[in-house]
């Protein structure tokens, strides 16, 4: 059994008085494609930076692929990180980016990089500064993947892209995953994209993990119960109320079943879709801390 791609215990990061990440305990199995969602300022970039070893935790422990992040050159080669806005060097050509990648990375796959650049139709002689947003993202993805890492990390890879470029990026990324057997963690505001490509989900808000797990299991465990006000059935053990909304006549409960089987009381109730489920947790996080949270943008 391979070690988990990410294993943290009570992981916390503070900047002075500001706590960016609080008490995060997570285990993500190898081979996953993990979607990290949450409002701006929730701690997504902090968690990704800790995972890639760019910053160190204030307290708690973190292991990436079974080792401390960025412990040595070997560990650095196992993880590919693409920061927000998919940075490339504007003055260098596409080909110069690939040559630099070859010099800097011990396991550089030159053929893979060249093939992919040709397939996505990038002109190797063109300066990166003159590429479109979508092409820059594709170049950054190609360089990260040609490192042949075991884990690829993306901070908001598609946020700035138009729908066509976004889909092209995800197609390319999924093709890499199918080809290279690489695990992925990506943060995104776009829940429809997360639903499409991710098999694991982490919802971060107010610096804490609100919920995390296998996407299909999470969706299967969440139900919406609607009934006359005050007349809802007693909930069986293992069923937790996530939110309760009351109108004059009606009560709507969002519940989570944590047991292995769906209790009889929940069998006929519809499951929430991913978007509603995520929003429920974000609203709850906002209410608990008493601050108004900007909800994740559902579509753009």
């Amino acid at each position: 059994m391979n070690p988990p791609i990410l294993h943290t215990k009570a992981l916390t990061k503070r900047y002075g008085h500001h706590t960016a990440l609080t008490d995060v305990t997570l285990t993500l199995p190898t081979g996953s494609i993990v979607g990290l969602v949450g409002p701006n300022g929730a701690g997504k970039s902090t968690l990704l930076a800790l995972t890639s070893g760019l910053i160190r935790p204030t307290s708690g422990t973190i292991e990436v692929l079974g080792s401390p992040p960025a412990a040595d050159a070997a560990q650095l080669a196992r993880v590919g990180f693409v920061a927000q806005d998919t940075p490339v060097y504007a003055a260098l050509t596409v080909d110069e980016h690939l040559r630099m990648g070859r010099r800097l990375n011990p396991h550089w796959d030159a053929r893979l990089a060249a093939d992919r650049i040709r397939q996505i139709g990038l002109d190797p002689t063109k300066k990166a500064g003159r590429l479109s947003g979508g092409q820059k993202a594709q170049l950054a993805l190609t360089i990260a993947a040609a490192k042949r890492p075991e884990l690829l990390i993306f901070d908001e890879p598609v946020a700035a892209l138009d729908p066509l470029a976004r889909r092209a990026f995800l197609q390319n990324l999924m093709e890499f995953v199918a080809d290279l057997d690489v695990s992925v963690i990506l943060s995104s505001h776009l829940l429809s994209d997360v639903e499409r490509v991710c098999d694991h989900l982490i919802v971060l808000a107010e610096s804490r993990v609100q919920i995390a797990g296998d996407t299909e299991t999470l969706i299967a465990g969440h139900h919406r119960l609607v009934g006359p006000r005050g007349d809802l059935p007693d909930l069986p053990a293992g069923v937790e109320v996530i939110s309760a909304d009351h109108t004059e006549r009606q009560t709507t409960l969002i519940v989570r079943n944590t047991g292995p089987d769906t209790p009889r009381a929940l069998r006929e109730t519809p499951n929430l879709d991913l978007e509603d489920m995520v929003l429920t947790y974000l609203h709850r996080a906002g209410r608990i801390t008493g601050e108004t949270t900007t909800p994740v943008e559902a579509t753009r």
Partner: peptide
Amino acid sequence: TVKHVVAKIAINPNT
């Protein structure tokens, strides 16, 4: 093939 499907509709190969 799995690769063909994921490249075409951008979904998780595991799916």
